[in-house]
């Protein structure tokens, strides 16, 4: 077994070269290169985590924006509906006012017309009385040969006409 039979002759060489090459591996590879490899892995993991977080934040922002848009949209729709209702009410009120104005004009014209009719009738009645009293005095003059004055004839006609 060379491991034992050569022990005395080779142990120093074995230990020395082992320390040399393991030292090289430890200091150059283990201390020098491995941390860089692991830093790369960490940087990648961090980037992935950051990207995921950014995507999550963007999604949350989009959701919030959509919610805000929906609220604004709802508010605008309510506003528009209020405007429509107000316009409808305004239009109805204006219509009523114009109707009322037109009604009052019509009423006043009716009253005026009524008054004219009443005046015309009174006029006509007056003329009828005059005509009737003249006719009555003429009739009296022809039939009875009496001449009566207009006042008496008028009074008699008035009495006959109005009872």
């Amino acid at each position: 077994m060379p491991q034992i039979s050569q022990l005395a002759a080779t142990y120093a060489s074995q230990i020395f070269w082992m320390l040399v090459f393991f030292g090289f591996i430890f200091f150059v590879i283990g201390r020098g290169m491995v941390p860089k490899v692991m830093a790369t892995v960490e940087a990648r993991d961090k980037q992935i985590a950051d990207d995921l977080a950014a995507a999550d934040a963007a999604r949350a922002a989009a959701a919030a924006e959509e919610e805000a848009w929906r609220q604004a949209e709802n508010a605008r729709r309510a506003e528009a509906q209020a405007l429509i209702a107000k316009a409808k009410a305004d239009a109805a009120a204006a219509g009523e006012k114009r109707l009322a104005a037109a009604g009052s004009v019509v009423d006043s014209r009716l009253a005026e017309a009524d008054a004219r009719i009443a005046a015309a009738r009174a006029n006509a009645l007056g003329e009828i009385e005059t005509v009737a009293s003249e006719a009555a005095s003429a009739i009296v003059a022809r039939v009875a040969g009496l001449s009566i004055d207009a006042k008496a004839a008028g009074a008699a006609v008035k009495e006959a006409l109005h009872g």
Partner: peptide, 29 residues
């Protein structure tokens, strides 16, 4: 202490060299 460069040391060196190449190949970052 006698420290001849033996076949054992040669294969340690080869191990270190191959390991160095292996890790260096993964250092593109």
């Amino acid at each position: 202490y006698s420290i001849p460069f033996t076949n054992s040391a040669l294969w340690m060196a080869l191990t270190a060299g191959v390991l160095l190449l292996f890790v260096a190949g993964g250092m593109k970052r």
